[in-house]
Amino acid sequence: MNRPDKTYANDPPPGMVEKRGASLWFSHVIMIFGVLIVFFPIWLAFVASTVTQPEIVQPPMPLWPGDQFYNNYREALVSGVNVPVATMLLNSLIMAMGIAIGKIVISLLSAFAIVYFKFPGKMIFFWLIFLTLMLPVEVRIVPTYEVIAGFGMLNSYGGLILPLIASATATFLFRQFFMTVPDELAEAARVDGASPMRFFWDILFPMSRTNIAALFVILFIYGWNQYLWPLLITTDPEMNTIVMGIRQMFPSGDDVANWPVIMATSILAMVPPIIVVISMQKLFIRGLVDSEK
């Protein structure tokens, strides 16, 4: 017995599946093409880091890795130019971690105080913090340098990190998030006898983990890519960051650049940010798009 055809309200119209499949394939092709365009220079940098100097300077440049991977990366990590790349990577890692963690801690506590405490001039302090967004680092870099020099913090991790750990943007974002938290939670914690810091640590902090992860990725990359401030605050080559080191590897005058080592250093400089983004990818995306945060 043949069953009569049935049409359901949620069924797509005839031909919709085929059209959707075609548009899906087209969007994937465009996305793959864009990824290849972005990835191709990185691939060339990696290839250049595995070949010899003559193979780079004599066209055409090879498109496949050579046999000098170990030698070039060993020379970069151990020798470098003024200082080994391993030392510069460590300096950049300490600076980026210090800036990211410092900004998040200060912003969390500042937003917590602004939202949950009453004190005279609370909104004035908030808007003064917010107004610092109008002043880029370049505008206040000279007085900041004078303060750091006065405290004797030149050529130190403290001098690299402390002037950059205040963040008006992160404070504003955490404030907006804390204002969406129901007042009943704070009232319930108060009734249970929880102190303000207990309420912050047991309730607000876990609820903010996706926001913290998203900001940590952004702030880590921000700290990792700093160039002007480390260039100004450090004179000891042992305190150079990896971004400074890459710039110093380029010769001046008629000197010849050691391109395999420079490209190996560039690839090594990309590894820590890539690890941070990949390891925190899920929390980073949730922190940006989660509608319930």
Rank of each mutant, 00 (worst) to 15 (best):
L232V: 15
T234G: 11
N225G: 11
V217N: 04
W229T: 03
A213L: 04
L228S: 09
L232N: 08
A213V: 07
Y227L: 12
M207H: 07
W229D: 06
T234D: 13
L219I: 09
F216S: 00
W229K: 03
P230W: 05
I221K: 11
P237Q: 13
T235S: 15
L219F: 09
Y227T: 09
I221Y: 05
I212G: 08
Q226M: 15
Y222P: 08
M207N: 04
T235G: 15
F220M: 04
A214V: 00
R209W: 07
M207D: 02
M207Q: 09
P206R: 02
P206N: 01
L219W: 03
L215P: 01
W224G: 02
R209A: 07
I218S: 09
L228W: 10
L232W: 11
T234Y: 13
M207I: 05
I218Y: 12
I218R: 06
W224E: 01
T210E: 09
I233L: 12
D236Q: 15
I212N: 06
A214G: 01
Y227A: 11
W224A: 06
T235W: 15
A213M: 02
T234K: 07
I218E: 10
N225F: 08
F205W: 05
G223K: 05
W224I: 13
A214F: 00
Y222T: 12
T234Q: 07
P206C: 00
P206E: 02
L228F: 13
W224V: 08
V217R: 01
L231Q: 12
D236K: 14
T235P: 10
L219V: 06
A214T: 02
N211C: 06
A214E: 05
T235H: 14
Q226E: 15
I218M: 12
L231V: 13
T235C: 14
G223P: 06
D236T: 14
F216L: 00
Q226N: 14
L228D: 05
T235L: 14
F220A: 03
F220C: 06
T210F: 02
F205M: 11
P206H: 01
F205D: 02
F216V: 02
A214S: 06
L219M: 08
A213F: 00
P230C: 10
I218G: 06
I218H: 07
N211E: 04
V217Q: 10
L232F: 12
P206F: 01
A213C: 08
N225C: 04
Q226H: 15
P206G: 04
I212E: 10
Y227K: 13
G223C: 10
Q226I: 09
L231H: 11
F216D: 00
A214W: 00
F205K: 05
P237E: 12
P237V: 08
L219S: 08
I212Y: 10
P230D: 02
P237K: 10
